[in-house]
Design a protein around this nucleic acid. Structure first.
Lengths: 339, 339
DNA sequence: TATTAACACTAAAACGTTTTCGTATTATTA
DNA sequence: TAATAATACGAAAACGTTTTAGTGTTAATA
């Protein structure tokens, strides 16, 4: 086992001072060519690499980004992480991932753990419990300490920081409009409770499109699930009772499961009943029929978030100006609707 | 913006030395009750939290774990991360996630980046390129430095370290056996090239089961794809040409896609042709029909990996003894086979 | 020849902790 | 009363860097 070599070791071996070694490795003008060559050769030979922790302590920059998300076993979040990782890595940053598991307490604990010097900034999406409680003090404390934060997807207006969202309302609006244009008459919505910012937006878009149309809003056709978890029975009885000819679902799973239910009843997709979901994950692609979805471009979202955060981290200026970036969703047309 | 308070700040305010503050906060016997109360009250008031970086530098422990995986947009890896995160977090460790994107170079760069003090140990699964090249010097260097490594799932025997795998051979064996017992006669395998350790094991299990049966091995019935990526045409012509009555696939996607193909041809699942896949992800659960799979228990694998790693990190002893844990897969029976 | 400039290098502080060792003050014992 | 022990605290080193402010030597200038 060969331990890592330090500046001190090199200095001792070469009988120069630590500062000389440090400067020589940085190719400083102050050091003679001879010494530089000697030091650099030695460093290379013994594979010297500066200790990240020491550097972090010195310049109060860790080159780490903290990412706090509710759940990692979710295609959308997973693509966001990939986007963050891609951009951050290119900029020399590492990504520390913490999962809140939709719990307020875990979110708080994770943030506190990281806020004590471990990271230069946060990228996060709020847990459902946090959004339900509406308690954002942990976020406020962090921003007050001067640690930059970027919120994405599940955001709140109560914290002043950079934000990245997709236009969920627009996505739902476009999807609903599509149904209307295709002559669907009983357009249903399967969503979750409004405490999730995204569900709310999507519901708004759905309503808006219907309001603008001759169809108008029929609240009977709106099913609100208690959580993102599947309640198979609720969906089953809803579909049987109201027999919609089009269904917009706020995620993939609701949609795919609903498709299976109506297929078992002998209905044809999309002729008898059409489906559009949210999130362009594996499920949509490989479902039978494949599912038309409002794509959220998670990877793009991750990249944008990382870019905004790193810009803030690296900007000297202490500007207190924050922006919200709104990404446009796209409708990915597949076989669950006519085309 | 209120900056973080340090020991020095408290010492100055309270007109005591830094050491006194440090000890007081640790409730040291050396310090008088009066002073301790004073210091602790002050610290609480100003929300003092020790700086992680300084502590890391001091005791050469970062309480960070580096996780290097080929891809995060994969249900299996995602569940492993969750398992790691869960265990690590409970032990006070953070998880730094790096993606190799199946690239050897990225794997090397990521490891080098983290190995310079940022982490106390690695948990990783090899990129396909690394397995193909068979170059494990980056791993060897790290272990030689005394940094503990745990390899999971995609492992190699050429590096001495702890390992966690599921018994892929057994999983494939059991699945194939299931087909045989159900009277299937033309049992096909859709796999990838053997450079992936897991594909190899699974192929072995498939062969073993057939060898033991009257059916024997028919290499015509084994389709090797070039990579984990879908090649729809290859699968299509394979299924059309050999018309198997049972198919074992090394992942979900191959299976779900194949099921759709045969359904389009009018075959009934599982009567005419049955399917079993690997990885118990969302696809299997929501496919139509739902897919029987060999579950890999990713979360368990993550937990076990984290436990092995943290044990090594925290064990004083410099024992050079490594173990390989083999987890048993389970067959999750769903509608793609008779039952 | 005396002064200045250029060169090549070193000492030391700083980042924020922890910890060992030392010491002044008071209390206890012989 | 003198020696010793207990108490409560501080100084300083250490972790591995970076960087500022010197410093001694040689070369160039007046």
């Amino acid at each position: 086992m060969k331990a890592k070599i330090t500046l001190k070791d090199i200095a001792r071996e070469l009988e120069v001072s630590i500062s000389t070694v440090s400067k020589a490795l940085k190719n400083s003008e102050e050091i003679s060519r001879d010494t530089k060559e000697k030091v650099q050769a030695f460093a290379k030979l013994y594979n010297y690499k500066p200790n990240n922790i020491a550097i972090s302590l010195k310049n109060k920059r860790t080159k780490n980004i903290g990412v706090v998300i509710p759940d990692i076993v979710h295609h959308f979040f997973t693509t966001v992480i990939r986007g963050i990782e891609k951009y951050a890595n290119a900029k020399g940053y590492n990504v520390i991932v913490c999962l809140s598991e939709e719990s307020f307490d875990k979110e708080v604990i994770n943030m506190e753990m990281l806020a004590n010097g471990s990271i230069d900034g946060f990228i996060m999406s709020l847990s459902s419990e946090t959004q339900r409680k509406g308690d954002y003090n942990h976020l406020k404390e962090v921003t007050e300490q001067g640690i930059p934060v970027v919120l994405f997807d599940r955001i709140t207006q109560e914290v002043e920081c950079d934000k990245v969202v997709i236009d969920d309302e627009l996505g739902a609006y476009q999807a609903t409009k599509k149904f209307i244009d295709q002559g669907k008459k009983k357009i249903a919505l399967i969503t979750t409770d409004d405490y999730l910012s995204v569900s709310k937006e999507r519901t708004n878009g759905y309503k808006k499109a219907l309001e603008e149309s001759p169809l108008g809003i029929n609240t009977d056709l709106m099913l609100k699930m208690d959580s993102m978890e599947m309640d198979e029975q609720a969906i089953k009885s809803f579909l049987n009772k109201y027999e919609p000819d089009a269904v917009l679902c706020v995620n993939e799973i609701f949609a795919v499961y609903s498709m299976r239910l109506v297929q078992e009843k002998g209905l044809r997709i999309p002729e008898d009943i059409a489906f559009i979901g949210f999130t362009d994950g594996v499920l949509s692609k490989y479902a039978n029929p494949s599912l038309t979805v409002v794509a959220q471009h998670g990877e793009k979202m991750g990249e944008v978030s990382a870019q905004m955060l790193i810009d803030k981290i690296e900007s000297e200026a202490e500007e207190e100006t924050y922006q919200t970036k709104i990404l446009e969703p796209t409708l990915v047309i597949r076989d669950s609707i006519a085309h």
